[in-house]
Design a protein around this nucleic acid. Structure first.
Lengths: 238, 238
DNA sequence: CGCTAACCTAGAACAAGTTTCAGACTTGAT
DNA sequence: ATCAAGTCTGAAACTTGTTCTAGGTTAGCG
């Protein structure tokens, strides 16, 4: 079986919280049933086709029949791999984010303060989005449109984003306040991206807002000196 | 004719910015062609049906055929009043927001600092959402899913939200930094709401994040004393 | 009153996401 | 090699947002 039950009724209102985990999470996942080589190849073809179509016309251009055709897979198979268009696009975003995380790791941001580095990282990501606005549109719209049935996948994206931001901050043991600040930054990032993509905010405005929200980091870096180390500007390096 | 051209190609990338305007904007709009009484009644019936259906199953439960039937209007007419499901739901949100703005005005938040008052206001709004989570889901999902063709309407919602927040801050002549902070708060508000609605964050987490982002207000209230008055409160740890 | 333009209605038609099904193909274990 | 279970395929069907059409209704105006 490729997919577990699928569609668990997470009705009884939640009490969860994006688990932390700066590290990787690759194939060891017990929920991922280990694909054969051909299956892995199919999956890749599908994701590739999805990104390709999204890069042209955005969300609307990603039509399931076309994705199936492009990736040489029957429609039913496509749906076996990704139970809905939103699942597919969120997975596409996972894919792209992973790629971006790698890229950023290779050349980390160089600002003096944590806030600077986070803002720089986000703006770098933002420039990547500018290069493929349609793709960005498709992915982000899917992400925010996702309902409960996609929660696990969205959560994975969220964890990836958190990891990227924490990397930029140079923290691996954040306080609750810092986690909250990071979540707020993520919120701002997604929402600002959307307002830009739908033409309601300029790039300059997005930049300003990102810088604004990053000030929250400085706030949380001051409180709780947390020991003899790290009093001043907040650690650089990584 | 009820609707102007509809579907203006706002292609050439933007340079706009949510105009300010704390005041109201009612019927004088030259773009709104003044409905007859029966038309106004139809419009109300539609919005009512929309909210009603949304209150049960959320976004998916708002089916255009059902809305049409519920409001005793032909499908084609429904589409004449609201050119898409997203338009309809965004208009529904406008409606609800207007209502909420009135409610809040009647009993304004009582906190000492601007940040307190904004956080209180948002939490009050949040509790309203909790009372009708499905409705909230439908409206917010529509709002973030909206593409360029809905920009004007989404912008109206954004202005309303901004007005509510500025009211809570007790400002009517905000600085650019303050406007940026308000935008960041709006971003956080929408996005946090979504994570709660899709079961990925607890109410407690949303509360914390709102309080976190509201600290930005204190920051911007410090800079630019803006006159002899109001230097006091603002900053304090948490 | 009677005309005309704009509006409304019922219903068919179309588009794209999703589901379903019968039959062919793979895979893993015996 | 063979069998059973699980996958994949191609095609049709179903659902819901959206558009289109033909004819009846309304509102303002001469």
């Amino acid at each position: 079986m490729l997919w577990p039950p699928r569609g668990s009724p997470t009705q009884p209102d939640m009490e969860r919280g994006t688990g932390h985990m700066t590290a990787e999470a690759k194939e060891s996942d017990p929920a991922t049933p280990a694909l054969t080589e051909r299956q892995e190849a199919r999956r890749r073809r599908i994701l590739h086709a999805s990104a390709q179509l999204a890069s042209r016309g955005g969300f609307d251009a990603v039509q399931m029949r076309e994705v199936a055709e492009s990736s040489q897979v029957a429609l039913g198979t496509l749906y076996r791999y990704f139970p809905s268009k939103v699942h597919l696009l969120v997975a596409t975003m996972q894919d792209q984010l992973q790629h971006m995380h790698g890229t950023i790791r290779k050349r980390p941001p160089a600002g003096d303060t944590a806030a600077d580095r986070v803002a720089e990282t986000l703006m770098r990501a933002f420039r990547a989005m500018q290069r493929e606005p349609h793709l960005a549109d498709a992915m982000v719209r899917a992400l925010t449109f996702a309902d409960r049935s996609v929660s696990p996948e969205v959560d994975t994206v969220s964890r990836l984003t958190t990891a990227i931001i924490l990397d930029a901050m140079g923290l691996d043991d954040p306080t609750p306040q810092q986690l909250s600040a990071v979540r707020v930054i993520e919120h701002t990032w997604h929402s600002a991206l959307i307002t830009w993509l739908s033409g309601r905010a300029s790039i300059a405005q997005v930049k300003i807002d990102i810088e604004t929200v990053c000030k929250l980091i400085d706030l949380t870096m001051d409180e709780e000196p947390a020991g003899p180390v790290k009093a001043g500007k907040a650690r650089r390096g990584l």
